[in-house]
């Protein structure tokens, strides 16, 4: 027996979808077909994981939202002035269960980010906490700002 399962926000979300979709009707068709539609259908998959990049005095910090990933599901590489994130979120339907709603599917991903400056590849560190991956790339020593003392002559 399958239970009736209702998402209370479903009607509102559908309305929201139509609302946003309606805007694109006035776009030209190629644009609609190639760019808009996949983004609408699965915003999460268009660029997964979503990443924020910060710059501090000593480092560049990349943060990625990777809910459901455990250590070992993600690989972090630095090569040729680029940061590479590669991995897989396994999200199988648990054995013997039927599906009512499926919004968080399995995703295999690989994203490459050109680094905004020179980094010390040896000092790169990465941590995973509550579904957020944080990669800290220390700036190369000779790229750090340096104070030059002015001596009286």
């Amino acid at each position: 027996m399958t239970t009736a399962w209702r998402d209370l926000s479903d009607a509102l979300r559908t309305f929201d979808f139509i609302n946003r979709h309606a805007e694109f009707v006035f776009d030209d068709w190629p644009g609609l077909a190639l760019e808009r539609w996949p983004r609408l259908r699965s915003a999460a998959r268009a660029a997964w994981p979503a990443v924020n990049v910060f710059e501090t005095k000593e480092a560049f910090v990349y943060k990625a939202e990777v809910p459901g990933l455990a250590e070992g599901d993600v690989g972090v590489h630095v090569e040729d002035d680029a940061l590479l994130l590669r991995g897989e979120r396994k999200s199988d339907v648990p054995e013997g269960y039927t599906v009512h709603l499926r919004e968080r599917g399995p995703i295999a991903f690989a994203r490459k980010f050109p680094l905004p400056g020179r980094v010390d590849a040896e000092g790169v560190s990465a941590s995973l906490k509550d579904g957020v991956l944080t990669v800290t790339l220390p700036k190369a020593k000779d790229a750090l700002p340096r104070q030059i003392a002015v001596k009286a002559g």
Binding site: T3, S91, H100
Partner: peptide, 9 residues
């Protein structure tokens, strides 16, 4: 709203 899966057995 978060993305969700709903399963049943």
């Amino acid at each position: 709203a978060p993305l969700v899966d709903v399963f049943e057995n």
